[in-house]
Amino acid sequence: MPITEIVFYMFSLVLVAAAVAVITVRNPVNAALFLVLAFFSSAAIWMLLEVEFLAIILILVYVGAVMVLFLFVIMMLDINLAPMQEGFINYLPVGITVAVVMALELMVVVWSKGRFDETAFPVPPPHPDTYSNTKALGELLFTNYLLAFELAGVILLVAIIAAIALTHRQRTGSKRQNPSMQVRVQRDERVRLVKMDPEPRQGSQ
């Protein structure tokens, strides 16, 4: 067995185990951390496909930014687990239906002849040593798919602005500072020197 296959199965095993753990562990913080592990393993598998750019981006964006904010929120929530498990029986039929549909869809993909198997998607030949995934991706994005790429950028920008506009509220009663005024403040505005004669001490002679 070539070493890449051993590495692949190793990371796949970790990936599947971590993904199962995400939905089975009780503690939400542990679940989020297992999700991080799952992202990491899938990044390693992408690395085996010689797509180092996407693999590192996966770690950078999902593990480094998204999951940090996730953990941040989860840790601050005071989650009481008991009421969350109350509706388990009620939701069970819906859950089972969704699971069965997804399983069927997966089976169609796995067992269909000629459309999704190795003949349709053969193992890609290894790239030459000079191949740079970063460069290849950049060339495609900025030539053939420039319009789609820029459209995606605009949509993301709109989403960012919309998210800010939707959640931003002017809070009443918050005290705010004006740093430039703080810097420009003069001594005379804060300190008043008072000239007064010394008073005789009380009760002393």
Binding site: V29, L33, V36, E52, F53, I56, I57, I59, L60, V63, G64, A65, V68, L71, F72, M75, S132, N133, T134, K135
Partner: peptide, 25 residues
């Protein structure tokens, strides 16, 4: 000597925060 070196550095330095968060929690 990888071509995505700088991205790798960014990814690694963004991971350091996990140690802190997990330690605090």
């Amino acid at each position: 000597d990888i071509d995505a070196g700088l991205l790798y550095i960014l990814a690694m330095s963004s991971l350091g925060v996990y140690g802190l968060i997990i330690a605090g929690w």
